[in-house]
Computed example of a mutant assay.
Amino acid sequence: MTTDPVDVDVPARNSRPPLAQAAFGVGVIVQDAEGRILLGRHRGGTWELPGGKVDPTHESVAAAAARELREETGLRVPERDVRVFAMLHDVVGGINRISMGALVRVGSATAEVTEPHLISAWRWTDPGALPGPLFDPSAQILAAWRPDLGVEHPPAHRLQVVSDEEQATPGPLPRLRTDSRP
C-alpha cells in the first residue's frame, strides 16, 4: 500500500485562510413607529443606511448591525431585535461585495452624528420619498426590503434569508428567492 507524502511544512488545508476576494457588510434599515426610515447624508454626496463591515472576529451579522448602529448613530438596540432578511451580492472592481440587509424597529429615537467626518446629518424619511442619490448597497437593500418602492439600483443577486422561527415551523419552508434584477 502506498500513500501520498504529506508536506509537513505546509499548514493543513482547513487551517489556512482563503485568499481574500470579498467585502462583507451589513446595512440597517431603522424604522420608527411612523414607518419612517433613518438615512444619513454622507460627505461624499450620497444618502445611506447605517451600517458597515462585519468584523472578522466571529461577529454575527446581527451583532455587526447593532454595533454599527451604535457607533454611527448612538442608537442602541439589542442584537436579538435585529432581523436579517436578505443577502445581496454584486461585484465592484473585481471584488465580490456581500451586503446583508437587516431591519430594526424602534418606537422613536434621535440619531446623533457620531462620525462627522463621514456623515453630516441623519434624517427620518418616508420610504415613499427617498432622497437621492442613494449609496448603491443601501439602494439594493431598500429594494430587497420593499420592491414596491421602485428604488433604482445596480444589479445584484439577492437571497432572501429565512429566520430560525420560519425554519422551525412545521410544513413547507418559504421559497428562497434569488434574482439579479435591478
Rank of each mutant, 00 (worst) to 15 (best):
E166R: 10
I98V: 15
E48L: 11
L75S: 02
E71K: 09
L173D: 06
G40D: 01
V84T: 08
R76C: 10
S138T: 15
P147C: 03
A65S: 07
P116F: 08
D136C: 08
P18I: 03
T110M: 08
H89Y: 09
N96R: 15
P147G: 00
E48S: 13
K53M: 13
A111K: 01
V54Q: 04
P18C: 05
G93A: 01
G128P: 05
A22C: 08
P133F: 02
R83I: 09
R177V: 13
H153N: 13
V54I: 11
A12C: 09
R76Y: 11
R105T: 12
I95N: 14
G45C: 02
G27W: 00
A121N: 13
S180N: 14
A143H: 05
A62G: 03
L49I: 07
V8Y: 07
G40K: 02
V106C: 01
Q31T: 11
I37N: 00
H153K: 14
A102L: 00
Q21G: 13
N96L: 15
F85R: 04
A22I: 07
A64Q: 01
A121Q: 14
S138I: 07
I29A: 06
H157C: 10
G74D: 02
W145R: 07
Q167P: 04
F85K: 03
H42L: 15
G44H: 14
P11Q: 13
G128T: 09
A139E: 00
P133I: 02
P182L: 12
P137T: 08
R36C: 00
G107V: 10
P174D: 02
I37S: 00
A86C: 12
A129Y: 10
N96V: 15
L75F: 07
E115N: 13
L88Y: 01
T114A: 08
P133A: 03
V113N: 02
S180I: 12
S60R: 08
N96K: 13
P155M: 06
P17T: 03
